[in-house]
C-alpha cells in the first residue's frame, strides 16, 4: 500500500553519516545498533516496548528499540526524516500489518499484554490504540457520521441518544463542537484543514481508546490550527496516553512530558522533555536540537 511504500523509502534514507557511539562489530546481528541514553522505563507504563525491530524486506528499519509510554503522558518522538519514528509509531497499533513486506520482532506490551501475541485480534487492539494521521483524512460522510463511525462499527452504543451523546462529547473534547454544532449533517470534507484534523481526533476519541497515536498531526496545518490542536493534545492527556511524532522540536517541547530522539532507526536518547532539550546527553541529540542537521 502506498503509505507503506513511502515509509519504506523514508526509513532508509542513508544520508546522515555520523560517528557511531559504539564501535562497529561484525560479529553481532545488529552491528550498528546504538545504546539508548536516558530513562527508557517509567513506573506503571501503559505501553512497554522491548527490543523492537522492524524489517522491510531486507532493510532493517527499526533497530532494537525499547521504551515505555506512561499513563497520562504525552511522549514526543522527534528525529530527522527517515529515522523510523513513524514506522515505530505504526507498530504500536499494528498498522504495519497492512504492509506485506514488513516484519516486526520484539515485544510490545499494552497493559502488560503482548499486542503481537498470536491470539490477539487487531480490531479490538486498534479500538484501544487509535491513530491520527499526518494528513487529515475525514471519511466522505457527514461530520456526525464521521464521529459516529467508530462507536457504530465497534457496537459501543445501544441507542441513538447514546450515540448523539458520544458524538457531542467527542466533538466537545476536540474543541470542535461550537464550530460545527449547527451543521452536523454537512460533509466532513467541507471543513477547513485544521477543523478536519480536529474532526479526525474527535473520531479517534469517540471510541474511548487508551492510547492515541499521532503521526505528525499538525504538519498540514496553519499555525492557528496547530495551536488549537496542541492545546487539544494537552487537554486529552488527562484521559489518554498519547504518542506524537513530530518534526517540530518546538511542538515537542510544548506538548510533551517526555521526548524520544530517533536517528536512522535507533532510539538515541529518551528522557524528560525539559532535560532533553536543555541538556541533551548524547552528541547526536545535541546536534539535532541545536539545528546542525535535520
Amino acid at each position: 500500500m502506498t503509505q507503506g511504500k513511502s515509509m519504506t523509502v523514508n526509513a532508509f534514507e542513508d544520508t546522515h553519516e555520523t560517528k557511531p557511539v559504539k564501535p562497529q562489530s561484525t560479529a553481532t546481528v545488529h552491528r550498528d545498533v546504538r545504546e539508548t541514553v536516558g530513562e527508557v522505563r517509567v513506573e506503571d507504563p501503559r505501553i512497554r516496548c522491548t527490543d523492537v525491530n522492524v524489517y522491510y524486506g531486507e532493510k532493517h528499519a527499526i533497530k532494537n528499540i525499547s521504551l515505555d509510554v506512561g499513563k497520562g503522558e504525552v511522549l514526543a518522538m522527534i528525529g530527522p526524516s527517515g529515522c523510523g519514528k513513524s514506522t515505530f509509531l505504526r507498530c504500536i497499533n499494528r498498522m504495519n500489518d497492512t504492509v506485506s513486506s514488513c516484519r516486526v520482532t520484539g515485544e510490545i506490551l499494552l497493559d502488560g499484554e503482548d499486542i503481537n501475541g498470536r491470539h490477539i485480534d487487531v480490531v479490538p487492539l486498534r479500538a484501544r490504540v487509535s491513530m491520527v494521521f499526518q494528513k487529515p483524512n475525514p471519511f466522505p460522510k457527514s461530520i456526525y457520521e464521521n464521529v459516529a463511525f467508530g462507536p457504530k462499527i465497534h457496537g459501543l452504543v445501544q441507542s441513538k441518544a447514546e450515540l448523539d451523546e458520544i458524538v457531542e462529547a467527542s466533538l466537545r473534547k476536540a474543541n470542535l463542537w461550537d464550530e460545527v454544532k449547527d451543521r452536523l449533517d454537512d460533509p466532513g470534507l467541507g471543513l477547513s484543514g485544521g477543523q478536519q484534523q480536529r474532526l479526525c481526533i474527535a473520531r479517534s476519541i469517540a471510541i474511548e481508546p487508551e492510547v492515541i497515536l499521532m503521526d505528525e498531526p499538525c504538519s498540514a496545518l496553519d499555525p492557528i490550527s496547530t495551536a488549537k490542536v496542541e492545546q487539544l493534545i494537552d487537554e486529552l492527556r488527562q484521559n489518554y496516553s498519547i504518542c506524537i511524532v513530530t518534526h517540530s522540536m518546538q511542538q515537542a517541547a510544548r506538548v510533551s512530558q517526555r521526548t524520544a530522539y530517533f536517528h536512522l532507526g535507533d532510539l538515541i536518547e529518551i528522557g524528560k522533555t525539559d532535560d532533553l532539550f536543555i541538556k541533551p546527553r548524547h552528541q547526536l541529540t545535541e546536534d539535532y536540537i541545536t539545528g546542525r542537521f535535520g
Binding site: V123, P124, A127, R128, H154, G155, L156, I207, E208, E210
Partner: peptide
Amino acid sequence: GERNFARVQAGM
C-alpha cells in the same frame, strides 16, 4: 474504557 472494551469484544 473497560466497558467499551467489553462491548468491542462482544461484537467481535
